[in-house]
Amino acid sequence: MTDSTDRRPPGCRVPLIVLFTLVTLVVTSVSARPTAHTSKPKAAQALVQFLTSAHSRQILAEIGGFAPTRDSVYDRARGEYLVQVRRALQDAGPRPTNRNYTEFGRAFRNAVKSVVTAQDVISGDTARELAEIPRK
């Protein structure tokens, strides 16, 4: 019996985990992105078509935990995780337009960091700063 890391797409000789790793490296690497000046335009086109295909999006969602960019992936979701992601995206609203949004975000991240580290507490100064930023 093979485990999930050895599963392969139909007709593919590469295990999904290897394929996923390669796709992740390509997607996150600026130097690996195809350009108009590539010496291999057909290969670049095939790569872009694969990376944007429903099958690729399904692999990235199921194995990598990435939020799918295609509705068809959510439609074929096999678990509660993607149902919850879809619901969260449907219920999401735009970011606040407060001119101090960035400053508040920084202060909020620092507050969360202090709670999840050894400090395990939000200081009074941080709480005051968070309360004051939106009033500026």
Rank of each mutant, 00 (worst) to 15 (best):
A118V: 14
R109K: 10
E129W: 08
A32E: 13
K42N: 12
T102S: 10
F108L: 08
G79R: 10
G79K: 06
A43D: 14
V73T: 04
G11T: 05
V73Y: 02
S72P: 00
T24Q: 12
V27A: 07
C12H: 10
V14W: 09
T38C: 02
R135D: 13
T69C: 09
N98I: 12
P15K: 02
S123N: 08
N110G: 05
R86A: 01
R76T: 14
R87K: 10
I17K: 06
G93K: 10
V30D: 15
V30T: 14
K136R: 12
V18I: 15
T2P: 06
R70S: 05
T97P: 00
V18P: 00
N100A: 05
S29R: 01
P41H: 02
D3Q: 05
G79D: 13
A92C: 07
I63R: 01
L22P: 02
D3A: 10
R57K: 08
R135P: 01
P41Q: 04
S53Q: 04
L82T: 03
T35L: 01
I59T: 01
V14H: 05
R87E: 05
V48L: 08
A44T: 04
P68Y: 00
V115F: 05
L16N: 05
D120M: 13
N110E: 14
P134E: 03
P34K: 01
I63M: 03
Y101P: 00
A131Y: 10
R99T: 08
D120R: 13
A54E: 11
A54V: 15
G11D: 07
G65R: 02
L16Q: 04
L47Q: 03
R7L: 15
